[in-house]
Amino acid sequence: MLLSQYLKYQTERNLYLGQNFSRHLVQKNITPEEVISIHKVALEEIQELGMTDTMIISLDFLTEFMIQYGLALREHKILVEQQESMNHEIELAAKVQNTMLRTKKPELDGVDIDFLSVPAGKMNGDYVYFQDDDSDFVGIGVADVVGKGIPAALCMSMVKNGLDTLGQASISPAYALDVLNRIVEKSVEDNMFISMFYGRYDNEESVFTYASAGHEPALYYCAREEKFYDLDESKGLLLGILPDVHYMESSIKLAKNDMIIIMTDGVTECRTENERFLSRQELIDMIYNVKDETPGDLAHSVFKALEKFQAFHQRDDFTLAVIKKVQ
């Protein structure tokens, strides 16, 4: 019917009707070979065409091709469905992860502590942990699994369990890393490494003590000088490389409005569209511009600025934690 119309009047309208019809056929899972067969029957019915046998036979040849296309199409549909259900599973896994790893930000008079962690994909390979009890101490761990995505995220539950067993906020950062290193070394495959920064703030003395297992150097902001310094005296070995490692720790005294900013390499290794890396100075300038915001807002503002720097294509998990002495 449609065909005979089009053969008579080759209008765009008739083609459009044909398009609608074909949409309908695709929806109903009609295979391409069946479409040809419908076409063939229609041709044979329109007698005035005087279809020759050769022309009809040529359609059989076409059918042979279309069977392959039809199979590919159907397989494609099935693969898309599979992908959807996989995505769904990953989303559920991410939710489970979030619940499992949820950490409450500590409340301590005189200090404001906050953080922001945004995964590049659905699951986060960065992790921020707080060790908080009724003492004057608060512990903060920031970990980053080398690699990202699902395997990295799974690794994090182990880090959390390790930190949970340490128990106390007053624990020494170097000791915390020694213990975690042993746990990670024993339970993770050889090709998985974790970098971690562990710090402890002593509210009574206003002293921040820290140790690093191959982690990005944290920044110290000195409010009096309005200047940033790297805290990188102790860039130890990544967790999980050697069984017996002893980490070094250092301390720094904080004055009012001083800050410690702990990051993962999702912050420091940002790249522009043209593969230009963010320089340390650019990062410091970004933070300087928002230094008077609260820690939560500051983390958020830096994330926004970096999102723009990367042309809205975040490649690695982003984590930034801020400890600010406010009194």
Binding site: Q68, L71, E75
Partner: peptide
Amino acid sequence: QDGYSSSYGLGAGLPGVKRL
């Protein structure tokens, strides 16, 4: 399994046979 076979997702192979 769909997508297996050396022709990678072209739908032929044994899953294709099964469907035909």
